[in-house]
Computed example of a mutant assay.
Amino acid sequence: MSLNERVQEELEALEAILMDDISITYDEQSCLTLIKSTIFPSTANEVNKQYVCVTIEVKLPEDYPDSEPNVQLRNPRGLDDSTVNDLYKSIKEKCTEYLGQPVIFELIELIRESLTESNLPTCQCAVCLYGFSEGDSFTKTQCFHYFHSYCLYNHLETTKRHYQEEQEKLPAWQKSTKGFQAICPVCRESINCDVEELKTALPPKDLENAQNFEVTKDLRVLQDRMKQLFSYQKSKGGIIDVEAEENKLLLITETSDNGSTDTNEDPGPSDGALESDAQRGQRFDYRVSSGLNNR
C-alpha cells in the first residue's frame, strides 16, 4: 500500500467516525493536509455540562505517518496555560509512540479523555479574578467563557443599571427600543442568562475566604494628601459628584495624532517643570468649570 493510500484510508475512517465534527482540507501547493476538530468532554447527552473545549489543528506533512504531524491547540475554553502545556506534552509522547502508524484519532481521543477527567474550568473568573473551586456555582456563556454565577449576576445588574441611567438622560427620540441586552464581560458577545437563577448563587469560596483589606501606613499618608487636595479643590469651587464617580468604570481620554494627550485649552506645565498638588488642583478646577471633566 502506498503512502498516499495509507493516509487516504485514515482520513476516510476519521470522516466516517466523526462525521460533521471534523474538517479535512488538502492544499495542493504545499502538499499539506489540514485537519480540524473541536473537542469536548464526554458527557453523554448532557451538552450543557460540557464546561471546557479546545480545537485541534493537525497538519500532515507529505511523508506522514513516517514523520510526526504538526499539532496545534486553538481556542482553548476553560483551560489555563498549564493545562494546555500538559496536553502538548501528552500529544508529543503519543506522536512518538505511534510513529509510522495512523495517530490522528488517537490524539483526538487523548484530548477528549483529558477534558473529561478535568471538566471544570481551570481559568479565572473575569469578574472577581479568583479561580473555580469544587462546589462553586459557575456559569458557562454561549461563547464558552466562565464566571461565578454570583459574580455574573452582580455584573449584569450593574451594567443594566448603567444602561437605564444613560437611557433616561436621552430625549425620547434617541432612546433605544430594543431594551437592555446582556453581553459577555470578556468578548462582548450577546448572552442569555436566567438572572433570577443567578441571583440565588452564593459567593465563591475564594472570595468569601479572602483576607480582609487592611489600610497600611503608606495608604493612610496618601489618604491624608488626597483629603487635603479635595479640600483645596472644594474651596476653589470644584464640584465632585461622589455618586457619579462611584459608577464610573473607565476614564477615556482623547489623544492627538502625535500621541500626546489632547487637553484643548487646558495646557499643562511647561517642559521640565514639576507640578505641585496646588497646580494639579487648579488644573482640575479648570476642567470641572469648563466641562472637560464630563467627557
Results as ranks from 00 to 15, higher is better:
residue 135 G to L: 00
residue 232 Y to H: 11
residue 61 P to F: 05
residue 283 R to L: 01
residue 229 L to H: 10
residue 121 P to Y: 11
residue 4 N to A: 13
residue 170 L to V: 10
residue 11 L to W: 00
residue 177 T to H: 07
residue 95 C to R: 00
residue 123 C to A: 15
residue 165 E to K: 14
residue 178 K to A: 08
residue 112 R to F: 09
residue 88 Y to A: 14
residue 287 R to T: 15
residue 15 E to I: 06
residue 84 V to D: 02
residue 103 V to F: 03
residue 284 F to A: 15
residue 21 D to Y: 03
residue 34 L to K: 12
residue 94 K to H: 03
residue 40 F to H: 11
residue 50 Q to G: 04
residue 189 E to G: 14
residue 113 E to W: 02
residue 245 E to H: 06
residue 247 N to R: 10
residue 272 G to L: 09
residue 19 M to W: 00
residue 14 L to T: 02
residue 106 E to M: 08
residue 261 T to A: 05
residue 13 A to G: 04
residue 112 R to C: 11
residue 194 D to V: 13
residue 61 P to G: 15
residue 217 K to M: 05
residue 264 N to M: 09
residue 212 N to Q: 14
residue 41 P to E: 12
residue 226 M to D: 10
residue 192 N to C: 11
residue 82 S to L: 05
residue 95 C to K: 01
residue 254 E to H: 06
residue 107 L to C: 09
residue 157 E to N: 12
residue 62 E to C: 05
residue 215 V to I: 13
residue 89 K to V: 08
residue 214 E to D: 02
residue 268 G to A: 13
residue 110 L to K: 02
residue 15 E to Y: 04
residue 122 T to P: 04
residue 104 I to L: 08
residue 178 K to Q: 12
residue 279 Q to W: 02
residue 100 G to L: 12
residue 205 K to Q: 06
residue 177 T to W: 02
residue 69 P to Y: 04
residue 222 L to I: 13
residue 94 K to C: 05
residue 266 D to L: 14
residue 222 L to A: 15
residue 96 T to E: 05
residue 254 E to L: 14
residue 11 L to E: 02
residue 286 Y to D: 01
residue 71 V to H: 03
residue 3 L to F: 02
residue 64 Y to D: 06
residue 228 Q to K: 15
residue 219 L to A: 11
residue 12 E to N: 08
residue 194 D to G: 14
residue 260 S to R: 14
residue 292 L to R: 10
residue 119 N to A: 11
residue 248 K to E: 13
residue 276 S to K: 08
residue 191 I to Q: 06
residue 160 K to V: 04
residue 238 G to Y: 07
residue 208 E to H: 06
residue 103 V to D: 10
residue 125 C to N: 08
residue 47 V to R: 12
residue 3 L to R: 09
residue 176 S to C: 05
residue 72 Q to H: 12
residue 191 I to K: 00
residue 221 V to M: 04
residue 26 Y to L: 04
residue 171 P to Q: 07
residue 79 L to M: 13
residue 283 R to T: 05
residue 268 G to N: 08
residue 198 L to K: 01
residue 98 Y to A: 15
residue 27 D to T: 10
residue 13 A to C: 04
residue 221 V to E: 09
residue 156 L to D: 03
residue 255 T to M: 09
residue 129 L to D: 08
residue 90 S to V: 08
residue 242 V to Q: 07
residue 186 V to D: 01
residue 173 W to D: 14
residue 171 P to G: 10
residue 130 Y to N: 15
residue 280 R to Q: 01
residue 45 N to S: 13
residue 144 F to K: 15
residue 209 N to E: 06
residue 80 D to L: 03
residue 49 K to W: 03
residue 232 Y to V: 12
residue 280 R to D: 00
residue 226 M to S: 12
residue 4 N to G: 13
residue 127 V to P: 02
